[in-house]
Design a protein around this nucleic acid. Structure first.
Lengths: 337, 337
DNA sequence: CTGAAAGCGCTAACAT
DNA sequence: ATGTTAGCGCTTTCAG
């Protein structure tokens, strides 16, 4: 629209470190020192150089710097699906914390696909990212350890795959236990579970089965129906569950999306929620409290998870050892179960 | 955990273009040509070089390449709040389309704050991003035109700020008109609006007022209550609206989050939705259809918007002129109005 | 405390 | 069709 073909951005004369050096009357190493606070430098010259930088609006070239240091001021966030409401909440925490440290965040969407996760790690290494935060759901531990040798890595909601990789995990066992015990306390004895696709983190399912066993029920493996973590899949899964076990009066879901789908399918099948069948979700996405009935679910502080992930990564960037943090979820009883 | 202080990533011997050149028995320029498809090169040598690249698992240095070309294989996505469900849906479209072209996406979260938006543009220019897609809600047109001179830029849901900047816009006027006419058709004559914070895009409000005028109502400026685009603000705004104009029987909201807050506050205030007050939202976020009552809203294809944004940007990257595309929303009548 | 030299890996421009 | 030359802008030695 009014633009000629072959458009190219304006070249825009770049202010380089040499320009700053010349104007400030020092060598460029001194400018480098002033910027990065490395090496010995007198306060006076540092101030003068800094003022010159300001004056000339000098911005160091990320490329040139990266070429020397092999590290960019960028970090990577790997997640399976930004459209799943759990992730935006976490991402927001990561972004806010990253902005506070002047780091840009590259987001990689993998759909929990092993190839996509592998490709993301490739791209991250090639980009020279300063570090990475990953919700890996398909990649094997070895690949993660290998990645962790290339750059500071924090895995989220997955046990540390090995030496050198930090982790931040929500205590799924505790959250699951709270949810299932709540259902037992409410008098339910026939429980089913809607599990996410079997990935690397089987904790929720394991704990679900463990609590059932503790209550004297044999492990009813086919009381667990598996599917992708979506509303549609939740509806399908609960139908399957009811077909297998019509006597079920309570359903625990891997996440809220599955639970929401379950509630809808249950109602369509003529079952009242929670009177006929109780439903408990996991995550407490924003939507959960707004539904009718409002969803009983296990609340995790997703924003805090995001901030914590970045904090752990930043400490690693500063040369600290890999840390492992555990976040505590809590059951929020609302109307659905 | 078993990790010493002062950890640093393994150096990892880098395979360079010279290694490839040596093994393939050509000069490095030929390797460059084979990789980038630039310049003349015989099919035979290209194949040989490509095979060598594969064999050595050579990965070109993004830094070195950027240093020469002043362009990274990265693009920027500027948005106000990734936690607002509208944006993840769009982002998903952008990510998918970007991945198809081998581009990484850096996300900048601005909270619709002018300083944050300006800082994001700075960071983007400094990073040498190949291009940018922006939902700018606070920055002035001049700044956008200036940014557009530095790199290919596509603005989303905002009219093109000037020469050289591409745009993809949802037809807000048409969507708003459909929503308001629907309310009139349902017999409502006393309408109120919950507007987003006054930003650069006043189209929804203008069109709302225009349709009212066409129906012979004086422009009721104080029938429009403004707030941030959140559920909480929607509740507060509708309370304010009702305080000012208790006779209102229909509410049109700037987006679904405001509408959802309105529905809740309305019910808490003892008004039935839609019997006493009809509510129509905008966007059709995933949640909208799952609420009780399901939200009547103006549907926009957010994923398609994301893909289109990237498509327009990619064409610009390929040297085409700045395009301007208009996407058509459609009213979805559900239970709330 | 500061400067000079060297080179990171790549591609554009110019030979051949 | 391929090779050679020259640097992009920065930081890291190493001297002074």
């Amino acid at each position: 629209m009014g633009d000629a073909e072959g458009w190219a951005p304006h070249p825009s004369v770049r202010v380089t470190i040499d320009d700053v050096a010349r104007v400030a009357g020092v060598s460029r190493q001194t400018v480098s020192r002033a910027m990065n606070g490395k090496g010995e430098i007198s306060a006076a010259t540092r101030h003068r150089v800094l003022a010159t930088i300001e004056e000339l609006d000098y911005r160091p070239s990320a490329f040139a710097r990266g070429m020397r240091t092999q590290r960019a001021g960028t970090l990577a966030l790997i997640l399976s699906d930004i459209a799943n409401p759990f992730f935006p909440a976490v991402a927001r925490g990561v972004f806010d914390a990253a902005a506070g440290r002047g780091l840009a965040v590259v987001v990689h969407n993998t759909d929990a696909d092993a190839d996509a996760e592998r490709e993301a790690t490739r791209s991250i290494v090639d980009s020279g990212a300063a570090g990475a935060i990953g919700f890996f759901e398909a990649l094997d531990d070895e690949s993660l350890v290998a990645l962790g040798r290339r750059l500071p890595l924090v895995v989220a909601d997955r046990r540390a795959p090995g030496e050198g990789v930090a982790s931040v995990i929500s205590d799924f066992a505790a959250g699951t236990r709270a949810a299932v015990e709540h259902l037992y306390a409410a008098g339910h004895t026939r429980l089913g579970m809607l599990d996410g696709v079997v990935g690397v983190d089987p904790v929720r399912r394991q704990e679900f089965l463990a609590v059932l066993t503790e209550h004297g029920h044999p492990q009813p493996a086919d009381h667990v129906v598996t599917g992708p973590p979506t509303v549609t899949a939740g509806a399908a899964a609960v139908r399957e569950l009811l077909a297998r076990h019509p006597e079920v009066t309570a359903v625990f879901a891997f996440n809220d999306l599955l639970a929401i789908g379950a509630v809808r399918a249950l109602r369509e099948a003529g079952r009242r929620v929670p009177e006929d069948v109780a439903v408990v979700g996991y995550d407490d996405i924003t939507m959960a409290a707004l539904l009718d009935p409002p969803l009983t679910t296990v609340h995790t502080d997703k924003y805090e998870l995001g901030r914590t992930l970045l904090d752990v990564l930043a400490r690693r960037l500063d040369g600290h050892a890999a840390e492992h943090r555990l976040l505590s979820p809590r059951l929020v009883v609302r109307g659905s179960g």
